[in-house]
Design a protein around this nucleic acid. Structure first.
Lengths: 113, 113
DNA sequence: CCGTCATATGACATCGATCTCATATGATAT
DNA sequence: ATATCATATGAGATCGATGTCATATGACGG
């Protein structure tokens, strides 16, 4: 993965651009990110599990999970009393990892905020 | 680039997670995305050029460019009266293209919103 | 049926993002 | 020095995002 010369890329339609923006919006929050990363690490998890990992309140997390569902980043499945969440697809994980990687590089480059 | 098994990934620190969230935040807007895509297509451009391409008002675009600069997504260089913007690095373009690609796939899968 | 666990939802407050308008700054030419 | 072009900035309005509290729903055990 290196084919990233800046000079060339096809101009996406406004619709695609809007969808892209909302995809990234879904990633634009620490709590949501933490949840998605948790799903990447542990695989499918119940809400209760996510609450512990993310350190968010039940209601807050539930709202965030809704955002993730609406953005099709995750899928939910009932398992008795619980609801188990999982990543919607691997591309999601790929994009997030790429973002995390970039953030790490920035840190190493001394981009101290 | 395919190594996207969901099961394994290292848990990033909260700092990295926060940085990642703010990276994605910078991408979480149609106007900003349009500007970045323009820079990918045409290479470095002046603000005036970006105004035309993005269809934003001067002031609004300037504010957005500030967000992009603050997030280190783009860099600015004075060129006489003008200021020329360019992508900060190729990784930025890579991440964005990946996001656009995902958005396109979603559309094809009939994820009509 | 009732109580309880697990999760979702709605209303509301608050905080942040984005836009607009007016104005400031910086560079160049006259 | 002044005018003008190109861009940035600040203040304020408005809209959306996030969190909290209270309550609803859904599943299961007794």
């Amino acid at each position: 993965m290196k084919a990233t010369r800046s000079g060339k890329a096809k101009m996406p339609s406004d619709l695609v651009l809007a969808r892209t923006a909302s995809l990234f919006s879904a990633f634009a929050n620490g709590g949501r990110l933490k949840a998605v990363v948790a799903l990447m690490r542990h695989g499918p998890m119940s809400v209760t599990g996510l609450i512990e990992v993310c350190g968010l309140e039940q209601s807050a997390l539930s709202h965030q999970l809704r955002v993730l569902r609406d953005g099709s980043l995750v899928v939910a499945e009932r398992r008795g009393k619980q609801v188990v969440y999982a990543l919607a697809d691997d591309h999601i994980a790929s994009i997030l990892e790429d973002g995390i990687h970039h953030a790490r590089e920035q840190s190493r480059k001394g981009d101290a905020t």
